[in-house]
Write a protein that binds this DNA or RNA. Structure first.
Lengths: 207, 207, 207, 207
DNA sequence: TATGAATGAGATTTCATTCAT
DNA sequence: CATGAATGAAATCTCATTCAT
């Protein structure tokens, strides 16, 4: 557990600014440290290295995000897709919580999702997509099994997971106000749900 | 007009590999040149600089892509959206041509769309989104004017332009076979068209 | 405020040698650093850049020189030129102080006056000429106003300012011994004063 | 004898511009050649190297200047300084011819006197000073021998030679019009002659 | 707890020069 | 007569990282 430390906080704060402005790779430790009134050595004492500093900046937000995502996927797995209203409700609730979370850690989320190239987290969005894809696959499979002559279109499923992640990233970068964001994401989610139901199943043709 | 030149070709070929592997910024001229059996000076004789080399790698693909996009948007602007079958046909044709083009310059397109950060073309995908957004806005406006009490949801329009570009980028990165790609993109496009018609218009509420 | 530091001193010392030998532009940081037993990175830690190193070498001498020059011009401006003996005394005193100063920072002055091409101080001699020209113009104007039918010959005034600066630069490069220098500059100054009185004013012809 | 050659002329012309603009060291052969519509190889065919090109640019002007200077010094050596009017006349005539020459090869002279640092001619002004110094020394010696208890002040003699050269360089850089130049140089030359007569001899004190 | 100093490897770029053709 | 191609050496500068103190 990190000791409460003034320099640590200062460094994290300045790193945040620098990462947002320049991204991980182009961020300069020297620049961060001189902004913080410290020297580069301090980074290597307080954190492991540049990636360690990056982690310290984003880990809080990342953990909460991961937790929410896991909860969502767990709920999802327990749910029967035919119980449509329940599903829709769960999704709405998830979306609201997600927007809350994203905007309560606006800078960190921005860094994590858009400015992490070169860091250990550069493939995080892809990992989210993978998690959703995997989770939704189970539901889709059940769904497909209940409809004769249909099978899951794996590509569409994956792409829908992809644009679901993209939808929130895009929201974050195009709308900085939390309340407006909540309004704007609604039709997007509607669209995703409808598309899911309509395009994830395809006719099971023989090859 | 570039003269056919062995070293030039070699350099372009090696640069292509390096850009794909590391992206523009992290690509090393030294590494490219030593792969090509040349010195860095050769780059500055044959091209302007690092960006010039990048341009030489991608310009062929880029020009064709731009031309196709312009043609598409011109067609789009001439079309009445109520002539649904025509529109669908035009879109299908565009999509097919685009897939052909993307896969006939697979590496270059990959570089342009995914590996150009730091180069003069780093905002190319955004510019594509902008062009589509602008072009589609006109159609959407006509559409909205013909339906009382409706107006264009600018955010949805923009996001749909965004994921349209994304759809092809995603295709390229997830399916390397041209023919399979053509199959896979079909339901994606269906989804985009349907969503467009359903979600771009919203009720015109008074404030 | 620069901390006393061994490497810093060493670097300044070696840079001094290199600048004297090759001038600013042709001086090589690599060469300076290897002479100092350090790497080029050290320069960028201890100074801003090549110009920063140059500044560190000459700033002490430069500040003193500027201060002396300002004092001289201030005295000059307060003085009535008709009070010839006072003027001559002031000039003698200034010349002596200047020679003292130049020879107490012999290398730095040499660099500043003869080896600064390409650096931020490359136009320093010209700036000195400008300052003298401007300062002397006021005296000359008063002088001219007191003699009917005469006006200031701007070109001669400027040239005399120019060779006054030149006189000291020339002295520095041709006489390395401080005491001999003081003897040698005397007739030069006599000549400058006499010429000033005789040639700065010309007949005010109607055009 | 150089063959009359279009490329040669073009190259010389473009080099002239580049040398004036950037000086010898900072002039770029590539830049010169591309301006001339040729390649750098051409320089090495038509001239020896960068210095050879420089020489081709300035040699015409340089030869004439040297010739004039030799004539002047020869006249000077034949003359009895006591024949004051003759001397003054000769000097006037020399000055007029020199101004004519300088302004009839304005660019070349500028390059030679102000932009030659780094080239084989970088010490040309110093060599002129040396020639004048040497030539005038003879006259001064005769003069001194004719006046008991006097001897030549070598330093003043040298400095006067120095500022004589400087006077013309300064003229060139501060007055681009030939006729105005001729007016402006007159009092300067008066000053030089008077100073020469007054300050070159000093009392021969016993050491 | 953190500094100050320095490294070493790397980056891109520029240059005069060479030479086969 | 000149090109086009390429070299090789050098330039300044930036960076993450290390470590004794």
């Amino acid at each position: 557990m990190p000791i409460n430390n003034e320099s640590r906080e200062k460094l994290i704060e300045c790193a945040k600014k620098e990462f947002i402005e320049k991204g991980f790779t182009n961020a300069s430790l020297r620049s961060i440290c001189s902004q913080a009134g410290l020297t580069t050595g301090a980074v290597y004492f307080l954190f492991k290295d540049k990636n360690g500093l990056f982690e310290a900046v984003v880990s809080g937000a990342l953990n909460e995000l991961m937790a929410l995502l896991h909860t969502h996927l767990e709920q999802e797995s327990k749910t029967d897709i035919s119980d449509f209203y329940y599903v829709a409700g769960e999704h709405d609730s998830f979306a609201k919580q997600l927007v809350d979370l994203l905007y309560s850690h606006y800078d960190e989320m921005m860094i994590l999702l858009e400015k992490s190239q070169g860091s250990q987290f550069e493939d995080l969005p892809d990992r989210f997509v993978g998690m959703l894809d995997e989770g939704y696959l189970k539901s889709a499979q059940k769904f497909a099994d209940s409809v004769p002559g249909k099978r899951v279109n794996r590509y569409m499923l994956h792409w829908l997971s992809h644009i679901q992640v993209d939808a929130f990233t895009h929201l974050l970068t195009h709308e900085s106000d939390r309340d407006k964001a909540e309004e704007k994401i609604k039709p997007v989610l509607d669209m995703l749900v409808k598309s899911w139901l309509e395009f994830v199943l395809e006719d099971d043709k023989q090859c």
